[in-house]
Design a protein around this nucleic acid. Structure first.
Lengths: 140, 140
DNA sequence: TCTTGACGTGGACTGTGTCCATCGTAGGAT
DNA sequence: ATCCTACGATGGACACAGTCCACGTCAAGA
């Protein structure tokens, strides 16, 4: 994570306490927080941080390719710091929990040329959906 | 489309002019309108129709499985009447245009058991992204 | 230490969607 | 053909996610 901060500094980022806190909150595996959740956790360490700053910082991290924006439910976007290993998402239809998963194969290979309609197809996102073990158990 | 209305009536739907207009607006191929676009087109034929009614009707059509809700950009959800043929979506990163596409293979087959983490995986949505011919041309 | 422009702040604002009390009407009953 | 009534429509208030802006602050180079 300090790697991340150094990398950003190398790109001309001014290293403020707010940005540091946001980056720290996003550290870890299987982290998929909404902007408001990031704000709440950041505010626990830096009470006066504003929502606008969190949104700005998240937007910059996305632009820089350090964080991925995930929108699995049409509600709040979630921010995934696991940007350097290609992966897809498995979402629980009960509680909304998100897991990073690594399918075999390349989804792009499944889209033949005649199904591309002249588009320069650059990527594919796959969202798997199903009940997680906890929700499946609770339903019994 | 009258098929649709008859089917819904068979399920106990009360067939109001508002519902009829919403269903008619959604008729066609490669239709991916937002709720507000549906409302605007419906209002052209039935000026006093309210937004709440459009939202209610769209929600019911989704629940009944006659329309699919698509959320490709984290902004407004779009409504796709092509609910009876499995398909995926190809989205232009420039203008947001959406095409229905039919990839080969089954994305579910690409998620091995050890990547399912105990989830009862029920489905997968794939969103392909790239520049459409029009946007690619305009960029030159 | 000083300077300065990039950054942070909070509050107003927009877009999307939901809720609710009340009114209207589709369609069965007579 | 008319009446009844529960289901549906209405529109305005509300909630949530996100953006914008004018102004104040401060990181970092000189």
């Amino acid at each position: 994570m300090s790697d991340l901060l150094e990398r950003l500094r190398g790109r001309g980022w001014r290293l403020t306490s707010q940005r540091r806190v946001v980056a720290e909150v996003l550290d870890g595996d299987h982290v998929h927080l909404t902007a408001d959740e990031v704000h709440a956790r950041a505010a626990a360490r830096l009470p006066e941080i504003s929502r606008a700053t969190v949104y700005n910082t998240l937007g910059e991290l996305v632009t820089l390719g350090e964080v991925i924006e995930v929108s699995t439910d049409g509600r709040a976007k979630r921010y995934d710091p696991n940007a350097h290993h290609a992966h897809q998402h498995l979402v629980c239809t009960g509680c909304g929990t998100i897991r990073d998963v690594h399918p075999t194969g390349d989804p792009l290979a499944d889209l033949p040329a005649e199904q591309r309609f002249g588009f320069a197809v650059a990527g594919a996102e796959v969202t798997y959906r199903g009940l997680c073990p906890t929700c499946a158990g609770a339903a019994v």
